[in-house]
Amino acid sequence: MGPKPEVDTDRLSDETLAIQVSRGSSTALEVLYDRHGATVLGFALRIVGERTAAEDVLQETFWRVWKNAETFQPQRGSFTSWLFRIARNLAIDVYRRGSVRPQTIPGDDDSASDLDQTPDPDMDVASQAQSALENKQIRNALTSLPGAQRQIIELAYFHGMTRQEIAEATGEALGTIHTRARLALQKLREELEREKFEG
């Protein structure tokens, strides 16, 4: 995976690193990649369903971070929110172009067992533990959603479908779709609070 960047840079926040990237620091970009690359790849893979395409999305995502870092505005949200918005838009584009098909079928299935989930050897143990805990909290919260609500999240967020497309795909009325979407996000928020998710 290459030499580990300097320790001092490792301790900087995402937002500080983004500012350094905007000033031309490839080292800062490398730290961000090492920190979030695996999550971005897993996320892209979830949407596009094919490994090579997902790796391309990952590379393009961080290339756009490099080229557009000066447009990141901390007051409008976290760096990871901005990062995953870029990744999602790229992945949805790939998905919509139809060159790939999602690996998973929307619903209760969470078929990630055949994927490489080896922990990143460059991350320190504490960070790995914290990250793993948070990810588990999020998955628990998602799992707690009723199937119909989780399906709305899957179709809207991971497949980029509009509410009209979701209504058509599920055969449900728009009003039902609206209600399920609102309840899904409300319950997700409540579950994260219950899990004491600190994010």
Partner: peptide, 11 residues
């Protein structure tokens, strides 16, 4: 904003 992290990471 946390949804991406609900997906298993892949190296």
């Amino acid at each position: 904003s946390v949804l991406p992290r609900g997906v298993p990471p892949v190296n």
